[in-house]
Nucleic acid binder design. Structure first.
Lengths: 125, 125
DNA sequence: CCGATTGCTTCCCGAAAGTTAGTACGCACT
DNA sequence: AGTGCGTACTAACTTTCGGGAAGCAATCGG
């Protein structure tokens, strides 16, 4: 098994191979790999969507968690929120450029999880 | 912003764009995107390592969480555990083929988080 | 016999995540 | 007049996560 070039580039960031506890990347990683964060980002990778669309697509999410997750992602500059002052209110969410870049990393991950899920959960003794 | 080819392949899995609540991939995704799971998998992507190495590299992890995370990843068939009956005990952990495949998706994610962390946390109003 | 070593396990507790239910708004429709 | 819609926010509550500390096992060097 050869070392991947990716691992090499990681080495450039963490030369001693230690992921420091206080490192800012930890916080960011926690946000973007959160249970709902991943699903929201991946859903938005297909384009702008409304609150109710996201609620439906991230099946099982509560309104509280949807609001909270979107707020975090917006604060992190990964998601754009555009509210129109119409009745009933209409709010569209979309990815920022940075968010889109991130989503190109997350989509393969979700796809992988989907492709391997049955094997993984079935093969447990 | 064009639709990525990744999003297209996702579409093949979730044709209606909904990520079902009970879907097995949810469970797998939760395991592999867990706070410590990501770090352990990425650390192991550089090769076999001992318990104490992992404890040091995933800085800040408690022994309890290290044991729990490794057990989950092992049950999922992503990590190999090989214990030698010597005193003091020596236990080596490594990635399975499937785990290695997964790590090639996670490493870019961690690298991205590291590269963007300062911008993200600094740019918040 | 003492303590060091390594890899865990167990227990307790506080923090965080998450759910459910209730509130609001302002207009359109019945 | 009353009800529903879409997008929230808040409070109250429950469940899970996770840290810290302690204990344990087995052997070896002193």
């Amino acid at each position: 098994m050869k070392e991947s070039s990716n691992a090499t580039s990681l080495r450039a960031s963490f030369s001693d191979g230690v992921f420091p506890a206080g490192c800012p990347s930890r916080t960011v990683l926690d946000h973007v790999t959160s249970k709902w964060g991943v699903l929201i980002l991946v859903a938005l990778s297909e384009g702008e969507q409304r609150w109710s669309d996201l609620r439906r697509r991230a099946d099982g999410i509560s309104e509280k968690m949807l609001a909270q997750t979107l707020k975090t992602l917006e604060r992190d500059g990964l998601v754009n929120r555009s509210a129109q002052a119409v009745i009933p209110p209409r709010v569209d969410y979309s990815l920022t450029d940075r968010g889109y870049e991130l989503s190109t990393l997350l989509v393969p991950l979700v796809t992988w999880a989907f492709d391997n899920a049955d094997d993984i959960l079935h093969g447990q003794r």
